[in-house]
Amino acid sequence: MRALLAVLCLLASAPALAQAPAVPRPPERELVVGTRVAPPFSMKDAEGNWEGLSIDLWRHVAERLGLRYRLEERDTVQALLDAVATGQVDAAAAALTVTAARRQAMDFTQPFFATGLGVAVGRGGATAWLPVLRTFLSFGFLQGVLTLLGIALLVGTLIWLFERRHHEAYGGPPLRGFIAGAWWSAVAMTQAGAAQDGPRSLPGRVLAVVWMVASVVTIAVFIAGITSALTTQRMQGVVRNVGDLRAIRVGAVAGSSTVEFLGAQRVAFEAFSLPAEGLRAVKAGRIDAFVYDRPLLAWTIQQDFPELEVLPITLDSQNYAIALPLENTTRVALDVALLETLRGEWWARTRLRYLGRDGAN
């Protein structure tokens, strides 16, 4: 009898155990959503209306949840973050990176975009020659030159040994004969002109033929290697990693996640209020590089700074999300709507429209 009662009690409680916790309903009041100009994620059109990847995403999610809201602009990243942390706004949709320090003061939804920090530099100028100088001063280049020099000296020594008894140019004191052999070897290797005082003995002439053919291949390989290294260095630019930033003048946006990254990496920098100010400083030569969120840099340079370029490297890693005040009851509903949206065709089309094919992948 007791066993039967236990089974009946278990069956009665099963629906309650299987029922998932209800998602809190979003507030019915009008929400205040903060934003700032950060193209292509948040920007204004010619009529002053807000648009952009983050803005369109918020509108799409808010429509799905039936949220009423109005957008309020803040001038800087720090002002927008302060508005979220103090509860002046109910959410912030722009290009906000999730960091540990920010997470202590506010909440974030599921990330909707993964990116990293980019480095903007001038297309020309003095800094453009630094990668070239770096190549010529590198150990690899020095090793290649010394290898060629060593082979030329070895061939020159053999020519002297073969010809010292058969050719007056290589006779006399050993030093004189060695220099003559080394000079002939270098001239034959570089094809700088007709090599004078060629070998007369059979071993010397055989070695000369082999060396002339081999030197053509050797020089071609050497030149190809240097060209490839110079091309790679030029593509990478003056900055290849974080360590290179410590040797040049760097700029960053005050209050951005870039500042936290540069500080942790012990990189000195000059702070600017807006990305455009830092890019103008690069253009004017007051700083050598400007570090900021890569998609924002690429967009701004494409629109307004054709004299600059974003190097093909990515520093750090970043996740953009919608910022919320702590203990916000809307987050769960927003997360569910975001996860459903990010897997759909609408999001793929929207990314393609704002970022193109490179940014949409």
Rank of each mutant, 00 (worst) to 15 (best):
Val291Glu: 04
Ser257Trp: 14
Arg357His: 02
Leu161Phe: 08
Ala180Asn: 09
Ala321Met: 06
Gly263Phe: 10
Phe139Val: 03
Ala46Arg: 06
Thr135Ile: 06
Trp211Asp: 09
Leu158Asp: 00
Gln110Ala: 09
Trp346Tyr: 04
Glu168Cys: 00
Gly237Ser: 12
Leu117His: 03
Ala14Gln: 11
Ala16Val: 09
Thr329Val: 07
Ala323Asn: 04
Phe272Glu: 03
Ala254Ser: 15
Ala321Tyr: 09
Gly344Ile: 04
Phe269Ser: 08
Tyr69Asp: 06
Ser42Lys: 07
Leu57His: 04
Arg123Phe: 00
Arg74Val: 01
Asp288Ile: 12
Leu355Phe: 02
Gly125Lys: 06
Ala128Val: 07
Gln233Trp: 10
Arg36Phe: 11
Asp304Ala: 15
Leu130His: 05
Phe141Lys: 01
Glu72Gly: 03
Met43Phe: 11
Thr97Arg: 11
Asp316Trp: 14
Leu311Asp: 08
Arg353Lys: 08
Ile179Trp: 15
Leu80His: 08
Val84Leu: 09
Ala92Ser: 11
Val32Ala: 12
Leu154Pro: 00
Asp197Ser: 12
Glu309Tyr: 05
Gly285Asp: 06
Thr109Ala: 05
Trp299Tyr: 15
Gly144Asp: 13
Val33Phe: 08
Ala105Ile: 04
Gly255Glu: 10
Ala79Leu: 10
Arg134Cys: 00
Val89His: 06
Thr135Met: 01
Leu8Trp: 13
Gly122Ala: 11
Pro199Lys: 11
Phe290Val: 11
Arg2Thr: 12
Asp82Met: 09
Leu154Asp: 00
Thr115Ile: 01
Asp288Thr: 15
Leu297Lys: 10
Ala214Gly: 15
Asp107Gly: 08
Arg176Val: 07
His167Phe: 01
Ala214Lys: 10
Ala114Pro: 00
Arg165Leu: 03
Asn319Ser: 11
Gly116Asn: 07
Val61Pro: 06
Ser317Phe: 13
Gln88Ala: 12
Val7Asn: 04
Ile322Pro: 03
Gly34Val: 08
Gln236His: 15
Arg331Thr: 01
Ala152Glu: 02
Glu63Phe: 03
Leu11Cys: 14
Arg234Asn: 12
